[in-house]
Design a protein around this nucleic acid. Structure first.
Length: 294
DNA sequence: AATTCGCCCTGTCGGC
DNA sequence: TGCCGACAGGGCGAAT
C-alpha cells in the first residue's frame, strides 16, 4: 500500500517529466475514480492547463496548475505510471471477454488503467488501480482547505520533537498506540507497513495504550518513525504487492522490512517467532520479546 | 466528542 | 481442475 515513502518516490520521479507540461487531453475510463466531479467537468478543468508544481501531503499527490489543482490518492493498489513519448509498447485498447486486456511491457494499459493524462511532451501519465480504493479530485487553488487535506495532521518528517511531545502529552487515550499511528489526523502519511516497522524499531508493543507511552518512549517513537520513513524513501519505497515506481519497476525497501509481512518468521534481532495479531482492524506483526510490555 | 465498525473493491490463496 | 470463502486494507460515514 502506498504510504509516505512510496508517494514521495512517485513525486520525485514525476517532477522532471511533468513539471511545466501542458495537459492536452484526459481520458477517464472509470468515472467512480473521480470524487465529487463529473468526467466532463474534470476534463474541462484540466484541458490546456500547465502543471506548475507537484507536491505531497501525507499520502496525497497534489498537482498544482494556474487555475485549478487536482489531487490523487492511491488507496491500496493505486499506481501512477509515466510513459515517455518514445515508448512504443502501447497498443490500442481492446475489449475482450474478461475486460480491457491489452497489457504490454512495464507500461500496463489494461482494464485497471482508469485515467490517462496526455501531456504536451507527448508523454502520458497513467493512473492504474486494481482495487479502485484510490481517488482523484479537484480542490480549486486552495488545496489546503479541501476537507480531505484540511484534517491531516503534521508531516512526520517536519514536525519538531517539541511539538510531537506536546501532542503525545495530551494523550489521555486508551487507544492502542498503533491505532494512533494509522490515524491521519494525528500524523499524515504513515500506513500499516511503516507503523509496524516504527513500533518495532522503537521497541513498543503495538497494543500499548497511548497513555502508557512515556515521554522517553514517545521521543524514541518519533525518531523511529523518521528512520523507517527516510529509509523507505532512500530505497524508493516498499513493493510488497502492487506498488511500482512510475517507470513500472519495484521499490527496493521490501528486503529492509524487519516485521511487516514476516509473521511466523524469526525476529531478525532475537530469533523469537514474530506474532501476527489484529490491532485497529489491521494485520499487525511484532516481536513478543523485543516489544514486550505495554 | 471520541472511537469503532461496516463498507467499498478485486486478485490471490488454501481447502476440499 | 475448479469452485468457494477468507483475506488483504485506506478512508469515509454511520453507529455506538
Amino acid at each position: 500500500m502506498p504510504e509516505l515513502p512510496e508517494v514521495e518516490t512517485i513525486r520525485t520521479y514525476l517532477i522532471p517529466h511533468i513539471k511545466g507540461q501542458g495537459i492536452k487531453q484526459v481520458d477517464v475510463r472509470l468515472a467512480r475514480m473521480l470524487e465529487n466531479v463529473s468526467i466532463t467537468k474534470f476534463k474541462r478543468e484540466l484541458k490546456d492547463q500547465v502543471i506548475k508544481r507537484l507536491l505531497r501531503r501525507g499520502k496525497y499527490l497534489i498537482f498544482e496548475m494556474p487555475q485549478q489543482t487536482f489531487v490523487i490518492h492511491l488507496g491500496m493498489t493505486g499506481q501512477v505510471i509515466f510513459v515517455p513519448s518514445d515508448f512504443q509498447g502501447i497498443k490500442p485498447f481492446k475489449r475482450t471477454v474478461t475486460g480491457w486486456q491489452q497489457a504490454t511491457g512495464p507500461y500496463l494499459v489494461d482494464k485497471h488503467t482508469h485515467v490517462i493524462f496526455h501531456l504536451g511532451n507527448n508523454g502520458r501519465m497513467l493512473f492504474r488501480d486494481v482495487r479502485t480504493f484510490g481517488k482523484i479530485f479537484l480542490t480549486g487553488n486552495q488545496w489546503q482547505r479541501h476537507p480531505r487535506l484540511a484534517k491531516l495532521g503534521p508531516e512526520p518528517l517536519e514536525i519538531t520533537i517539541e511539538t510531537f511531545l506536546q501532542k503525545t502529552n495530551r494523550w489521555q487515550s486508551a487507544r492502542p498506540v498503533k491505532s494512533l499511528l494509522l490515524d491521519q489526523t494525528f500524523l499524515a502519511g504513515i500506513g500499516n507497513i511503516y507503523a509496524d516497522e516504527a513500533l518495532f524499531k522503537a521497541k513498543i508493543h503495538p497494543e500499548t495504550p497511548a497513555h502508557n507511552v512515556s515521554h522517553k518512549k514517545a521521543k524514541e517513537l518519533l525518531k523511529a518513525i523518521r528512520f523507517v520513513l527516510k529509509k523507505g524513501i532512500r530505497n524508493f519505497g516498499t513493493s510488497f504487492s502492487d506498488y511500482r515506481k512510475p517507470d513500472g519497476s519495484k521499490g527496493n525497501n521490501l528486503e529492509s522490512l524487519l516485521v511487516y509481512g514476516r509473521g511466523g518468521k524469526e525476529c531478525r534481532e532475537c530469533k523469537m517467532i514474530l506474532q501476527k495479531i489484529t490491532v485497529a482492524q489491521r494485520g499487525t506483526v511484532f516481536c513478543p520479546r523485543c516489544q514486550e510490555g505495554r
